[in-house]
Amino acid sequence: MKSFCRFTVLVVSGLSLVLSAGTLPAEEPAAEPLAQAHAHNDYFHARPLLDALDHGFTSVEADIFLHDDRLLVAHYQWQLKHARTLQALYLDPLRERVKAGKGSVHADGKPFYLLIDIKDGAEPTYAALTKVLAQYPEMISVVRDGKLEPKAVNVIISGSRPKQMMAAEKVRYAGIDGRWEDLDSDMPSHLMPLISDRWGKYFRWNGKGEISDAERERLVTAVNKAHDRGRRIRFWATPDTVPVWRVLQTAGVDAINTDDLDGLESFLRGQVAND
């Protein structure tokens, strides 16, 4: 009995030393959220949504198709897989994050943006999407009779956008992703909360050398117009380089579009020493 007691004391003492030395694995702290970080085609990453969240991104983009009454995430139809539903890859994990984050995705009380790009028929896909989004009322911002009820996740519809259908809804769980020509639109910001467009359509600068004064002014003017109407602004197909990110950040672009999660995170956290 004395030997057994002595062995027990040694085990307990050894465990205490391990704990005090901090050698047992500890949960890593969550990444600080990055307000301007947007994960373009997020579902191409090894862990859709989760990789972006681990890098502190506050906005992600998912392309969807309506297939056999299911909303499947993919860029092309031939990539469709029944297990890769919008719910499984994005909505359900976001719900868990919101529950764990005291009502917000990053536990900071600020909104998270889910950009959903409809790749096929606008109206039937959106009708199916509305039914799905309605299953997450505690998490997704909703507009009722023209009044916004903000929640943890703001959903924005891009790609094939059923504008008239969405504008006519009395209860709406998503906003419309506008385009450059909508910068002067009088549409309320809760209906069109974001302006997005292809960078090369309006700017020739590709990150090499200095951006011209004329193009810099055009960019700043677009950002200011969007902000004056309560909208965010984003450009897609921008070069994933530090000079471009720096120009976009300085101009006040709200969502810097990237496929390079590591690179943009490092830049936005000020860890990039040079170009």
Results as ranks from 00 to 15, higher is better:
L19C: 13
L19W: 05
S20I: 01
S20M: 13
S20Q: 08
A21C: 07
A21T: 01
L24Y: 14
L24R: 09
P25Y: 01
P25D: 11
P25I: 05
E27A: 13
A30N: 09
A30R: 13
A30M: 13
A31Q: 07
A31P: 07
E32G: 00
E32I: 00
E32A: 13
P33K: 02
L34T: 01
L34A: 10
A35T: 06
A37R: 03
A37Q: 05
A39L: 13
A39Y: 06
H45P: 05
A46I: 01
R47C: 05
P48T: 09
L49K: 15
A52P: 02
G56E: 03
T58H: 01
T58C: 02
S59V: 10
V60Y: 00
E61P: 08
A62V: 02
A62M: 09
I64L: 07
I64W: 13
I64A: 11
I64Y: 14
F65M: 03
F65G: 01
H67R: 15
D68Y: 11
D68F: 04
D69A: 10
D69I: 00
R70E: 14
R70L: 11
L71Y: 11
A74V: 00
A74Q: 03
Q77E: 15
W78L: 13
K81M: 12
H82L: 14
H82E: 15
R84Y: 13
T85K: 10
L86T: 15
Q87T: 08
Q87Y: 11
A88M: 12
A88L: 12
L89A: 11
L91T: 03
L91C: 11
D92M: 08
D92E: 15
L94K: 00
R95F: 09
R97T: 04
K99V: 05
A100W: 00
G101W: 09
K102N: 12
K102T: 03
G103D: 11
S104K: 07
S104I: 02
S104N: 04
A107G: 04
D108I: 10
K110D: 04
F112E: 13
F112C: 10
L114R: 08
D117Q: 08
I118S: 02
K119C: 08
A122Y: 02
A122F: 00
A122P: 01
A122G: 02
T125M: 12
A127I: 12
A128M: 12
A128S: 14
A128E: 15
L129M: 07
L129N: 08
K131F: 07
V132E: 15
V132P: 03
L133R: 01
A134I: 10
Y136Q: 06
P137S: 06
E138A: 12
M139W: 14
I140T: 04
S141M: 06
V142M: 04
V142T: 14
V142S: 03
V143C: 02
V143N: 02
D145S: 08
G146Q: 04
G146L: 07
K147F: 05
E149N: 10
E149R: 11
E149W: 03
P150K: 15
K151V: 04
K151C: 05
A152H: 14
